[in-house]
Design a protein around this nucleic acid. Structure first.
Lengths: 127, 127
DNA sequence: GAATTAAGATTACATCTGTAATCTTGTGTC
DNA sequence: GACACAAGATTACAGATGTAATCTTAATTC
């Protein structure tokens, strides 16, 4: 479980996404993954990695004299953190108004809605 | 419509919530509303109000020699902004994974779920 | 009218973020 | 072994944020 109060910033999320996809990359490998998408300088990526390590979100292990970075929390854990922080900031922590908002404003395809209904009914049965 | 790139911080959201509830309050009135909930100093509230005004989120009009603050955007507009920013940061902008996450992890009551299903089916009919 | 207040303006200051540049050091090259 | 290069460490620096304190000024009170 994430020990609360760990904040992952916008830019840091980009880094984390890469490392959840491929844990254990080196700084350079992370940079390569990002260069296509982002306009980040290699130095910038290194800064992010260090900060994330300092925050305790990443672990750096030396392999062949190079640091390899690995997330210490799962994507789901971090999503949970970010979500509840967002939820309390914007919706005072109330789930259903938030869901209602998203369902109302989102461009859900028929398929998306079917999926959601499936999930809902599944959870209806369970509790 | 909010002109994008307006960011409302955590603390600022607290202020905004008060003013959406009761537009046109003075700084002191806002402070009063918040003192029960938050531990904010009156000076802090004033700083927030000024910043929000500077950001163009609030408008300050002088009434009887006192500033009265009014939101320039509706709550829904700001929710929309915050949501899409959250959505793109955490879920790469993909709605249904986000919804699925929330539905799975949220402690929805039977009533909440019923409400959601109602909304879903309503939107199913519409498009 | 001198002193006190209270509102608002200005300033403060540490931390976090985005975005790197510079410094240090070990390693490989001639 | 002197030199260059690359990885990592340290430093930079402006804007945002949280959280106020101080300064200015106009109105209020003796």
């Amino acid at each position: 479980m994430m020990s609360k109060q760990i904040q992952i910033s916008d830019a840091e999320w980009q880094i984390m996404k890469v490392l959840w996809q491929a844990p254990g990359l080196t700084a350079n490998e992370v940079t390569e993954q990002l260069v296509d998408l982002q306009e980040w300088h290699a130095k910038t990526v290194r800064t992010m990695l260090s900060r994330l390590q300092k925050k305790g979100v990443l672990e750096a292990t030396v392999v062949d004299k190079l640091y390899r970075y690995t997330p210490l929390f799962t994507r789901d854990e971090c999503i949970g953190e970010a979500s509840s922080s967002f939820l309390s900031r914007v919706f005072d922590g109330a789930f259903s108004p938030m869901l209602a908002h998203f369902v109302k404003t989102s461009p859900l395809s028929k398929k998306d809605r079917a999926e959601l209904e499936r999930i809902l009914s599944k959870y209806n049965k369970e509790n």
